[in-house]
Amino acid sequence: MSVSESIWSLLLNEFVNYVVSSVSEPSEPTKEENNEDFINDPEDQKKITKAKLSNAGYQIGQKLADRYTKDRSRFREQVDIIRFLCKDFWTLLFGKNVDNLKTNHRGMWIIRDENFRPLRNLSFPFDGKNLKKFDLNENQIQIVQRFLYFPCGLIRGALSALGIDADVDVHCSLIPACEFTVISKESN
């Protein structure tokens, strides 16, 4: 059974929207005790948004990785796990292989995707001045970042289910390309 990719992307966008607005606006203004918990600092808001989205991704990533590896033999090396992530797992989730994979052989990988599915349908209004349309400014990067917390969590969850406890960070300056940095915690 399969569903359309677009309905998943839309659902994700709605989820991101919901989390962002639930963090930045008090949910029920009538309740006073709620307003006390309300977080005003934008840095904190960002942190909570990130935590919520990436935790959701983590849960799903773990389950999916378990599900998709149940008929495979056990991975012997870390490299095999990363290879599985970049080929099979990436294709299942994002419809293509990664474009570039770099490693320092000491527990750090940089995964680059030139056409990342969650960013594919994202665009910003053309301001008329900036000729390179998709070069993002600081503010826009912040917005794009929101849509990447969830995929980060997915990758972190999948890796943890397969036996690599890692930190995953993401960088994006030119949509729809983005770069994930995976740092294994063991190696440090």
Partner: peptide
């Protein structure tokens, strides 16, 4: 239309 496996969608929805 592009398709994905349903469990990805189902799990995401469940999480939401």
């Amino acid at each position: 239309i592009d398709k994905i496996n349903f469990e990805i969608f189902t799990l995401t929805y469940g999480e939401i």
